[in-house]
């Protein structure tokens, strides 16, 4: 894949005085949905601000689709950023907020109006667009900021905690929107504390802790690299006892736990590939009726817990 289609960080560090923002970050993000995951203060927002030129790196180079923020006319034609700053210019309505920043792009009044209405429609803010933003709820402010970030049809969409303050319905709609954008080939970079929600739509993850990138890539790949935690695989079948007894004889199987309903077994193995080969063999030899096989900890939440710790779920 061409470098011009990627977001590239080359040995990027950012220090705020003596405080570390991020350190020696090397990333090359392809299109699709990328989740930045990490606890508070891990450097997610700094990484996003660096990507969009709101802060400048102390060292290293960043390019987004081969462009840098030093070329704002071209750069911000492709990039939209919904920041975490819950603030707006004074006295604007939702419509004005989007429209006046579209006019800065050199668009005609008609084009800006059309794109403003389209963005308002996509984020479900049609009923509130003519009201002052100061009177909006937190969820509405979040949505109007999202509308402003997507209004110019960016190819790179950077979203800092975009699900904060949204009610369940709006969350589901937003997630569906992000997923759709990712499938259209856009770069959608999301930071979120709600791991199980970003897990559903992420093509790749970047795990951060204390300003360092500690893992990155496709979730399965990252999970496979975490050798010290055996993979958990849930097998649903008609003979879980038999399966468990056969599995115990294998060295790579650490644990085989029967489900309470008696129709499945949770296996912990150090070598997933060996396990799947073995499973095929047992099924054929023992005539076991297999109903389902699914990794139980091959998700962002588990990877987060293994690499960073904490309760997972909502970090």
């Amino acid at each position: 894949m061409s470098v011009d289609n990627r977001i590239v960080f080359e040995d990027v560090s950012k220090f705020y005085g003596e405080v570390l923002g991020v350190n020696r970050v090397n990333l090359s993000l392809p299109p699709g949905v990328t989740s930045l995951v990490g606890p508070n203060g891990s450097g997610k927002t700094t990484l996003m601000n660096l990507m969009t030129g709101l802060v400048k790196p102390t060292q290293g180079r960043i390019s987004v689709l081969g462009l840098t923020p030093d070329q704002p006319e071209e750069f911000f034609r492709h990039v939209g950023y919904c920041t975490q700053f819950d603030s707006f210019p004074k006295g604007v309505t939702g419509y004005e907020f989007i429209n006046q920043f579209l006019r800065l792009r050199g668009l005609s009044g008609n084009d800006a109006h059309r794109l403003t209405l389209e963005a308002i429609e996509r984020t479900g803010m049609g009923n509130a667009a003519q009201r002052k933003v100061a009177g909006y709820s937190k969820g509405m402010r979040q949505r109007i900021r999202l509308a402003q970030a997507i209004a110019h049809h960016p190819t790179v969409l950077v979203l800092d905690e975009p699900l904060n303050g949204l009610d369940p319905m709006a969350r589901a709609e937003s997630i569906a929107l992000f997923e759709a954008l990712g499938k259209q080939g856009l770069h959608v970079i999301i930071s979120s504390h709600v791991l199980h929600e970003v897990d559903k739509i992420s093509d790749q993850v970047v795990l951060m802790s204390y300003g360092y990138v500690i893992a990155e890539g496709k979730i399965h790949g990252v999970r496979t690299e975490v050798k010290e935690h055996p993979m958990q695989i849930l097998v649903r079948c008609t003979a879980p006892n038999l399966l468990a007894s056969r599995l115990f004889s294998e060295d790579h199987v650490v644990e085989a736990k029967l489900n309470q309903d008696g129709r499945g077994v949770l296996v912990r193995t150090r070598d997933a590939e060996q396990f799947y080969l073995l499973l095929n063999k047992i099924i054929v030899e023992e005539q076991v009726d297999l109903q389902a096989v699914a990794p139980a900890d091959d998700d962002v939440n588990s990877v987060y817990q293994y690499l960073i710790g904490g309760g997972g779920g909502t970090v």
């Binding site: 709101l54 750069f75 911000f76 700053f85 920043f101 800065l104 792009r105 050199g106």
Partner: peptide, 11 residues
């Protein structure tokens, strides 16, 4: 008012 970034994120 913490709104300068809107300008900085415009082209």
């Amino acid at each position: 008012e913490k709104s300068l970034h809107y300008y900085f994120l415009s082209p």
